[in-house]
Design a protein around this nucleic acid. Structure first.
Lengths: 346, 346
DNA sequence: ATCTAGGGTGAATGCGCTTTCATAAGAGGG
DNA sequence: CCCTCTTATGAAAGCGCATTCACCCTAGAT
């Protein structure tokens, strides 16, 4: 910048003005400066600008390190498809990028590895005006500290810190609606629910919705999921399906899985065992992943508006950047039931 | 930082050391500092650190503003699927993010809107250690200037600036292999090629491959594509298919489209006209988009390793950051033929 | 007891920019 | 022709950190 100033015979203040407030500089001077900048290959330092102006024009996203889950998903899917499957994080990124672009922000993304001062989270936090975090990505205490300095919005998970903005999807509502559909529209009465580990807030919320539907329909209300999977993967789903079949008791008429991955695994296991879906047993998932459309039979599920999650996150951040005094909000995004063949529809 | 230093009774230099080189500080001192930082909610400023150390630990990606293309794609696809389709840019982002993470970098992404000093490109360039650009995203002259200051790698397109690293996919090879397959394995002789606008380097490279295959097989070598679509969309593909049918001359035995979108549109148009694929006419695409698998009949196509494109980009950037003297390289990533029903396979 | 290393710490400088505040140069008005 | 009011520009003070150099202190060697 000093070089540009010297070369064009002005002060650095004027060079700065050329970039920040072009109209405040005489056209002739401005051209001289821009020409010099071009000749010198001048690239303004975002760091310096950010330091001086205390703002970066960048929003951030921290998401968990899915590396293992991906490797697994890739291995399970036919290799043909592994490039095609859009992950949760991909969709959030896309949503945030769109919204950020609309507001003139760039987006900084990083998967958190471990914690500690040198973590990527710390790097992100120091380089953005505000950021979103996927639940269970960053240790609560770190978030607690960081959120005192800049806007943070928490996505999809329990509200661990109450002064943070927070967005979830309507897990319970979705599962309740799904169960209601099975009960009322398909006349099923003996339903089983396969959940995840008790620490998964999503899975728990979905089970809650299932309970509500049972209650609403006057059916017995289970205290616990019939089965809990550790990993919520296809393999676990297959295992759960077989466990359900091998029980002494009569088969359930329908099985609700806490996510699509498990339901897909179950579909395959049932096919191997010669159990017809939906004639013998109805199967449902949750999430609305692409795979749910492709499997046979197509999976009835509940779609989460993941992209909107990202867009809303940016909206909240931008709002708070404009008005830091705003009360923290907690949004719940509506989900939508997708009826396909695996429950008997279509 | 000054506050932290004061509170823990040390100098700012020591605070800095606690974060940069923890081992050089006595454990007891370090704990005092970290405790003070926690109490004060200290978040190190990435800007200041970047300014002082002249490095950001961030890599960047600039890609075109697909907003319009997306809206169109969403409208064409059943609404059910619009969240599921992974775009070109999504895949590159994923690839770059993975690779960047491995090397300890975060990723800054921005879709370029217009040019000018205030463009997102300028913002990205000033905040990263190096970045990748999708072809035709950033004006060549801007890139010329920026690339004098930091590593830039150009993705998928002509090599406009010869001192830049550059990665392309083997468009010509792929199309040649595809045409060879149609000619040799399926015995087709009368082939048509539907290209894009002459300015699209990808489409042109693919046509080149087609020409080569004709030459290799001793077939007449066309000078120009039989048809050129303006937009390479489904609608244009459908139109092209109909135009081909309506010609005076005999129908071709096979039609190679320069991308999947057009081929899919053609598939639908042919179905409407009662033309059977592949019995009456074979159809092929290029890209390997997810949709190509779902349409009926499934589309024979050439898959681009888009994710690898992103990963390689990061590798090149990291290499160059380590050794700025390295000669610029130009990589060509191999593609793979995917044989499905639309050419008569399967 | 004195000397020597070496680890731990502080003072000071500068990274490249934004932003007042002050000043100079014109533009009208009397 | 002098005075006031804009408009364009310059000078200078940080922004928050990394880093060098100098210094002090302690432990081991002599």
């Amino acid at each position: 910048m000093y070089d540009v100033a010297e070369r064009s015979g002005v002060s650095i203040a004027t060079v700065s003005r050329v970039y920040r407030t072009p109209d405040s500089v005489r056209a002739q001077t401005r051209e001289r400066v821009l020409e010099a900048a071009r000749q010198l290959g001048y690239v303004p330092s975002g760091n310096a600008r950010g330091l001086a102006s205390r703002t970066t024009g960048v929003l951030g996203l921290c998401f968990p390190d899915y590396a293992d889950a991906d490797a697994e998903a890739d291995a399970e899917a036919d290799s043909d498809a592994d490039d095609a499957v859009m992950l949760y994080s991909d969709q959030i990124i896309r949503g945030m990028e769109r919204a950020a672009r609309r507001h003139g922000y760039a987006l900084l993304i990083a998967a958190s590895l471990e914690g500690g001062p040198e973590s990527l989270v710390a790097k992100v936090a120091g380089r953005v005006d505000g950021f979103a975090v996927l639940a269970q990505t960053v240790p609560t205490e770190d978030l607690e500290v960081i959120s005192r300095r800049l806007p943070v919005v928490m996505l999809a998970g329990p509200r661990e810190i109450d002064h943070l903005d927070h967005i979830v999807v309507a897990n319970a509502d979705g599962e309740r609606e799904l169960a209601r559909h099975l009960i009322e529209d398909h006349g099923l009465r003996r339903l089983a629910f396969v959940g995840g580990e008790a620490e998964s807030p999503d899975a728990e919320a979905r089970f809650l919705g299932f309970q509500e539907a049972c209650r609403d329909a006057g059916l017995p209300v289970p205290d616990e999921p019939d089965l809990r999977a550790e990993m919520m993967t296809q393999a676990e789903g297959a295992r759960a399906a077989e466990a359900l079949l091998d029980r002494e008791t009569e088969w359930p008429q329908g099985v609700l899985f806490a996510n699509d991955q498990m339901a897909v695994g179950a579909l395959r296991a049932l096919e191997r065992r010669g159990v017809r879906v939906p004639e013998d047993i109805a199967v449902t998932g949750f999430d609305g992943i692409p795979l749910s459309r492709i499997v046979r039979p197509p999976l009835t599920t509940v779609r989460q508006p993941i992209r909107q999650l990202g867009e809303q996150a940016v909206e909240l951040l931008v709002q708070r950047l404009g008005n830091s005094g705003r009360e923290p909000v907690s949004l719940m995004l509506p989900v939508s039931l997708i009826r396909r063949a695996s429950c008997g529809c279509g």
